[in-house]
Design a protein around this nucleic acid. Sequence first.
DNA 1: ATAGAGTCTCCAGTAGCTGGAAGGTCAAGG
DNA 2: CCTTGACCTTCCAGCTACTGGAGACTCTAT
Lengths: 132, 132
Amino acid sequence: MNIGTVARRSGLPAKTIRYYEDIGLIPPARRTESGYRAYGETDVQTLRFIQRARGLGFSVKDVGALLALWQDQSRASADVKALALAHTAEIDRKIAELEGMRRTVLHLAERCHGDDRPECPILDDLAGEGRA
Amino acid sequence: MNIGTVARRSGLPAKTIRYYEDIGLIPPARRTESGYRAYGETDVQTLRFIQRARGLGFSVKDVGALLALWQDQSRASADVKALALAHTAEIDRKIAELEGMRRTVLHLAERCHGDDRPECPILDDLAGEGRA
DNA sequence: ATAGAGTCTCCAGTAGCTGGAAGGTCAAGG
DNA sequence: CCTTGACCTTCCAGCTACTGGAGACTCTAT
């Protein structure tokens, strides 16, 4: 299989697959005589795994760890679970941060007339007058 | 005022202030004879404005727009409000994305024993067996 | 033979900083 | 007067995770 086919079947752009090879997330692909990368079904599985893990927000580094665990028959599921829970903790942190921003921005926007006059509590608050 | 003082008073690292000058978010600072950047109270106000806007998640580009509006006495508050509302929409999108991830990862983690055995629904799902 | 699609490598750019090196400056203490 | 240490300067590199494009080659079909 050429990279384009694998790309379609894994849901990852060909560019991204080359990039993952570059950074060592996946081993270098076998090559045809003319230099094209040649893939098999296993590679498609691996790339799908990566695609799903990335889709769940795991960092590329974490995906590397998950891949290693996946391919390690003697792994302890506790290690996988720990990674997953650490990830949800990180997600929670990000959500909380975004919700804080959302609350504030929305609150400011609600108090802004939004007409052609210059008065604007949003700018006033950013300028610090709101807490002066 | 030297950059360090302004940094302390604005809440932005000196490096970041230089960076903002570099990319044109703020105009180049006046210099002393020896080449040190020299700031006044107005600059502190501006940098605080930037710091707060960044803290609310506005992109540097948006902060540039907000700064321009802030300094434009003939602005229409509608323009500011539009920016703010577009930003909340973007925040909402991100929150929704993170919540989707969170749900899935947490669900997987809950079904994983997390002991020293290798069986792990997290990996199985990432491998696609969960939906085969 | 040739057109068009696919592939190759390499370089550069995105966002928003951050760290570090090599060197100049300034104020205080001895 | 000299030195020490904190501060400032520029420039270059690196971080995350790709993405776009140039220029050149290969493969397939007509």
